[in-house]
Design a protein around this nucleic acid. Sequence first.
DNA 1: CTAATTTGTAAATAGCCCTGACGAAATGCT
DNA 2: AGCATTTCGTCAGGGCTATTTACAAATTAG
Lengths: 403, 403
Amino acid sequence: MTATPRLHTQQDLRRANLAAVLYAVVDGGPASRARVADRIGLTRTAVSTLVDDLLAAGLLAEAGLGHSGSPGRPGTVLALSDQGPCGLGAAIGVDHLAVCAVDLRGRVRARAAVDAVNRRSRPEPVLERLAGLIDDVTGQLTEAGLRPAGLCVAVPGQVVRDGTRVVQAPNLGWRDVDLAGRLPSGGGPLKVDNEANLGALAELWIGDPVCRTGDVLHVSAEIGIGSAILTDGLLLRGNRGFAGELGHVPVRRRGHACGCGGRGCLEQYAGEEAVLRAIGLDPVRAVADHPGPGGRVGYLAGRAEAGDPDVLRALRGAGTDLGIALTAAANLLDPHVLVLGGALADLAPWLLPAVEAELGRRMGTAPPLVVSRLGADGPLLGAAHAVTRAVLDDPLRTAQPTG
Amino acid sequence: MTATPRLHTQQDLRRANLAAVLYAVVDGGPASRARVADRIGLTRTAVSTLVDDLLAAGLLAEAGLGHSGSPGRPGTVLALSDQGPCGLGAAIGVDHLAVCAVDLRGRVRARAAVDAVNRRSRPEPVLERLAGLIDDVTGQLTEAGLRPAGLCVAVPGQVVRDGTRVVQAPNLGWRDVDLAGRLPSGGGPLKVDNEANLGALAELWIGDPVCRTGDVLHVSAEIGIGSAILTDGLLLRGNRGFAGELGHVPVRRRGHACGCGGRGCLEQYAGEEAVLRAIGLDPVRAVADHPGPGGRVGYLAGRAEAGDPDVLRALRGAGTDLGIALTAAANLLDPHVLVLGGALADLAPWLLPAVEAELGRRMGTAPPLVVSRLGADGPLLGAAHAVTRAVLDDPLRTAQPTG
DNA sequence: CTAATTTGTAAATAGCCCTGACGAAATGCT
DNA sequence: AGCATTTCGTCAGGGCTATTTACAAATTAG
């Protein structure tokens, strides 16, 4: 439900073609003007003028002459600038805070992270600590002569569609938190998005190439189980921006009551707490016993690695229920691929067989199931890249001449 | 997973603006050039030249002067031509064949239909009879001085994404049937699509206005239970074009075996056959006993109307299971509205309460549930309108001067 | 060293929309 | 009725965008 942006004026055309040039370089790698022209179907002349603008804006850079061994004059290779604007990404996790900056080439140029106990914490101190990290990263950037073009924050919760307010983040205990103006976004715009969404976008942009060839359902779990649906390279956000709530897909007709008000939700059987309970641990105590990013997940992975039968059985059970929910999703969406991301990626060796078995049993030809390449880093990287992608989408809006 | 059409040239811009003018009239009703200019954000001058082209192409027509009572020279009202190209729509149902033609204004200008027993029938005789109906309708059109701009066929089964081949239509017993060249499409292109998809599009284009304001999940059932997902006014088709298979969402962990190979699929509990079995009827015999379009559904509706407790209980049960599957879908998609279409619309009075009860029990705030305004006619109308919409999307491609 | 090939740019051209201005046709006030 | 006001549609001129055509520069192949 996004209003399709109408193409009316010649400026819109110009903007679209500027973006097309940049994406030709993003998707196909550095290339000469002539090669870019072939890729996007414009003439060399047109590409030349577009490139002139992009060079002046500091988004592209000439990187010497390329010679391919074939006859003809070699072209001057165009690459994305590594001196241009950077994207600031931040992640608010239940037990950590992280910030990073990526340049237009997608390289991480600065980062900072701390362990933190954000569970059931008030927003103010969390945002204050996060602001400190952001200032830290911004400092590193300006030292290197780079400038931030905006900030995007990944949160484990529901976010309104326009991306300024957290509606609900149960595991942080936040409700209706407006972030506008409360974090130093480096002059650019500030956006908030769900970590599952950003993890999926990261996988699309810089992860497994299979995600670029069709619709994707990207599952990710921290404590809750979320997912994101990518269609045609775009997120399906739904009416309120809450699409992808895989954790509340019913997998038992009459099952445990869930915090959402329902019964038999997947989260009650495959969520982190459910797995901890299944091996006889008190979830609340486990959080205290195994803090830090990947604390409980690392603990579970360790015991699974050691062959602990209780943990293996619990993960098999979780995988089976996840398989049921994914059957529902795959029937509804017919995705090209299913991706396990977030904390699930670290437990994939023990979850995957059960998930695949259940999918195979229930669907004639189930979509392939792959493990995220980015894992727990996905949301953070996705947030940073969301900023740089916004620059690429509208190159001259945020650009400024090279110094 | 549709390649986004890139906007490169000024011709593309022109095409987009021609379409914008037409859609301004479609969505906002007949209006003067100046009014259209206001609606789409172009200048009166630009709109004038666009309208000139559209008048010459026979897509728009001037309909006299409009006077609103306000000062100023009255504008000449522009309306879609009712002499222009028409869309031919056809529907292949399990027990009927239907064809209709709609003009650009959306009015049905010709139609033909017959009862037929297509269940488990070979494609050849069915296509032959359908071709006869199409010729009949085309004849009516040419008598009225109209010309068909293409043909779209609705089938109860899975269709490849490019819309030329039926992969599988279980209730017809068809597998891998290529329709290209086997039906008289009146010179224009021939397309095939799933009836659930076309029913949903019909609802979007000419049905309940709530479908136009956000993402929609449109459920429709003939014998199988299908659905279509509309995002941003576009169908979500999925990787192979099989998205929307609501009928195979699991609603029982260990349930009846289903033809799809799975267990506990919704279709086994809420499909037409399941309901017939639940009231003690043999589905195969019931088909023979109650033929024709709406045969079994009409029979069930009649008994429900009369207060038959068995039927009411069976429909309540089906509604409950449908509610479970819709909970899954609503959590994944966060749709703006859920629509019950197809044959379900006729049983809505008895299904709806159970569906709503289950949704309400499982979701804090469930999306509103509405009944399709078009019902069983949806797919046929959607098919016809798919053709006219294609004309509106690229006005000068298929156009020809007024005679 | 020459021919062939490819690259990048320049000049001229065509298409599209915008600005500004104008006559035409209605309303509303005197 | 007469006049000012408002709105509509069109015309002329101009700016922007991409294309066509042409050409100099730089490389490979023989």
